[in-house]
Nucleic acid binder design. Structure first.
Lengths: 230, 230
DNA sequence: GTCTATAAAGGGATAGAC
DNA sequence: GTCTATCCCTTTATAGAC
């Protein structure tokens, strides 16, 4: 994610060191290290929250000395913020492109399945986000109040239009969005509980399909719709 | 919670200090302080997780000096564990007394409404529990693997019986329990997000009723049932 | 039972050698 | 760009005066 295209801007300005034919582009190590730190930080913060996570721990996970981490990100907060740039943009992309002309069942099913898929592919990101919200959203409060709020209002409007057109049962659109968020994210955030209850060491591919099918069935039927797929 | 009945055991052994007619029972201050610490710790741990919370912060919230907190609970872990005694027992009581003879719609509706009510009355407890699970359940793993697992199996069995008797749609009982957990706890755990999106400073009484009505409608209909109340 | 003092360890962040 | 050494602060926990 956020990898730049092959032709790197840095190549233009960078003087090849002492004329030797180096195979590295300038900034390449930088990029790689930043990514390793980002990945390590996602785990650390998801595991312990902002205060509980330590730079030392992030450095260890990234396989770098502590001061190296602080060389790339000048302080703890910068690391934390950097994580949410990726997360929020991914997050925003789901269910954004709906219109009143779409088929409600199809659109909602895609929304649910995409969210379950995100829980599968980015569980750490989901947990990190959950931590931030549970802790009172100190860093994301503004973002929630503006961007997320607008996003929800936009989607709710479309759902309300479907209801007004008699194409689905009259349920509160905003609550419906909350229901889909909570039920799908649960598979990432409460993974340990689910695994313990189901007596498994880890998820299998079919578990997510099963979960997505279940949620699609119940929620769509709950909205007076019939699932299209399968 | 966990308040003992009026006749206090301690009264038997306690010598009334210097013969004066004291109005305190021995151990009464102790009890009161313990409760204040418990309440303060719930907030602190819910806010910052185990590592992120500090004894200093708990002491401040409780209005006691730090060493006083460590006098009552010998270390940080003891405070943390003590919290879950209360939480897990409350938690266990909900939806426990169901039988295959019960009406599915009525039983599920009660389950949903009780859980929403718990989110309203004990949001800190819910957040604390969520934190613990997201962080990998280091303290509750055993409890999940044994008690919670058995609890879910028992309830799922009853739901499955309802399905086999043709009294509700054939949905996965365990997934249904997860759905009800996640969707109801969401109102406590993600409170900040919900408030920001709905542009409110705090919840009002009607919000919870509205949420409970919505969830009852959608989930019961999703299970091929009709809500009884209202 | 309460509180001050303090030991011992760990945390974030910076300076500066390489 | 990398890494060691280090400063300074906070944290947990204990000792011991009151």
């Amino acid at each position: 994610m956020s990898l730049q295209p092959e032709a790197n801007i840095n190549e233009i300005g960078g003087a090849p060191e002492k004329g030797r034919a180096r195979r590295y582009r300038p900034g390449r190590i930088r990029e790689k290290n930043r990514e390793r730190i980002i990945a390590a930080a996602e785990e650390a913060f998801a595991h312990h929250g902002f205060r509980g996570a330590t730079i030392q721990n992030i450095a260890e996970r990234a396989g770098l000395p502590k001061s190296n981490v602080l060389y790339y990100f000048s302080n703890k907060q910068r690391i934390y913020s950097a994580l949410f740039d990726d997360i929020m943009s991914r997050w925003n992309a789901v269910f954004s492109e709906i219109s009143p002309d779409d088929d409600p069942a199809e659109a909602l099913e895609t929304f649910i399945r995409t969210k379950v898929e995100m829980s599968r592919q980015h569980p750490m990101a989901s947990r990190l986000f959950a931590q931030e919200i549970i802790q009172g959203a100190p860093f994301l409060k503004d973002h929630l109040r503006t961007n997320v709020r607008e996003w929800v209002r936009g989607r709710a409007k479309v759902i309300q239009q479907w209801i007004d057109d008699g194409r689905m049962a009259p349920v509160d659109p905003v609550q419906l969005i909350f229901l889909i968020w909570s039920s799908t994210q649960h598979y990432a955030d409460f993974q340990v509980q689910i695994l313990m209850v189901e007596n498994k060491a880890e998820y299998e591919e079919q578990d997510f399909e099963h979960a997505a099918n279940f949620l699609t069935d119940v929620i769509l039927r709950g909205c007076g719709l019939e699932p299209k797929t399968r």
